[in-house]
């Protein structure tokens, strides 16, 4: 880490101005990405047509494109990005581990296991049914992880939470792979589910998803002060008057809701939840009251930009957003890691 002196942590007016500037910039980035996501694609629409389609109707073809493809996809990207950004920050805060990402709680692979079991044993192939199995699987995995990680009477510690989550994730992943390998038709259905994507999913999930993400976001922001205290260690947080076990429970609930619904709607999208908190921390520091909103915005912007880029990278088809994140997001992330000063957790 470079030896330049830390900036003073006292918030001055100038610091506040900078923060407001960063937030405004992020909001603008999200708006820009959303606009681009509605406008461009295999058939680029001009803004006037889109406006017409949204308000009154601009001919059958444009209407279909806007209402059934572009808008659901954009909203999905926005919600998923917010959810993953918040979920990742919460997870890194609670485990105090830079490798913490939402999937560490077992959410992703719990969901994957539920989906595969549903395909294999019940023959569920409809996407909207798979989505709810995924959500249920995510929830069940978190409850199990929490039970394994808890020291009786005190709730989980960062270390046990991270290890228990990883162990449960691997258990679910192994069983999932085993089922898939034993049954080729399940494999055929599953290998497409597990590439995270914003298209080809059932748009009817957007309504419930918006509600769940809203609840999750409120819980996450309510967790911010407790997370700041927990960063000093559990004992100090307790001494400061925070109820540690309850704070952890609220955090876990928020992560489960946010990540569970995202996995259900889009399949597993790795990387956003892991990387966005690090990028946000290098911009605004480690105060969770600021970090959480920043991560949400940054997650949404990153996911939508990757989705838009994916529409052009592999003509005539598209590249799934998970792959684009890997190809474009990773070099960008490594560049940031190399150039900027990092805040260890």
């Amino acid at each position: 880490m470079s030896p330049e002196p830390r900036p003073p942590t006292v918030r001055t007016d100038r610091g506040r101005g900078r923060t407001a500037g960063i937030l405004a910039l992020l909001v603008a980035a999200v708006a820009l990405a959303a606009t681009a996501s509605v406008l461009v694609g295999a058939r680029t629409l001009d803004p006037a047509t889109v406006w017409q389609a949204l308000t009154s109707g601009a001919g059958a073809e444009a209407d279909t494109i806007v209402h059934e493809i572009r808008v659901p996809r954009t909203v999905l990207g926005l919600l998923a990005g917010i959810a993953l950004g918040l979920g990742g920050t919460l997870m890194q805060g609670h485990t105090r581990n830079p490798l913490g990402d939402p999937s560490i709680l077992g959410v992703t692979f719990g969901a994957a296991l539920a989906v595969v079991a549903a395909i294999h044993f019940l023959g569920v192939t409809a996407l909207h049914a798979q989505a709810w199995f995924a959500f249920a699987g995510a929830g069940a995995a978190v409850v199990f992880v929490h039970a394994v990680a808890s020291v009786p009477g005190r709730g989980p510690t960062p270390l046990t939470l991270a290890l228990a989550g990883t162990a449960v994730s691997w258990l679910a992943y192994s069983v999932t792979s085993g089922l898939v390998l034993l049954d080729q038709s399940t494999m055929e259905s599953f290998r497409f589910w597990r590439v995270g994507s914003l298209v080809g999913r059932d748009p009817s999930i957007i309504g419930p998803m918006a509600v769940v993400v809203l609840i999750g976001a409120v819980l996450a922001l309510a967790n911010a002060r407790a997370l700041n205290a927990l960063a000093l260690g559990e004992d100090i947080a307790r001494g400061l008057g925070f109820r540690v076990a309850r704070a952890r429970l609220v955090g876990m609930l928020a992560v489960t809701l946010l990540t569970g619904i995202t996995v259900a709607a889009c399949g597993p999208i790795a990387f956003v939840g892991l990387v966005v908190p690090h990028l946000a921390r290098s911009l605004v520091g480690s105060d969770h009251r600021l970090l959480l909103p920043c991560s949400a915005l940054m997650g949404a912007a990153l996911l939508m930009v990757a989705d838009v880029a994916g529409r052009f990278l592999a003509p005539p088809g598209e590249l799934q957003v998970g792959v684009v994140l890997a190809l474009i997001g990773v070099p960008f992330f490594i560049h940031v890691v190399r150039r900027r000063r990092l805040f260890a957790l």
Binding site: R191, R194, A270, L274, V323, A326, V330, I334
Partner: peptide, 11 residues
């Protein structure tokens, strides 16, 4: 790097 390679593998 690992995430990138893993996603490319899955793809």
């Amino acid at each position: 790097i690992s995430t990138a390679l893993m996603n490319v593998t899955i793809w």
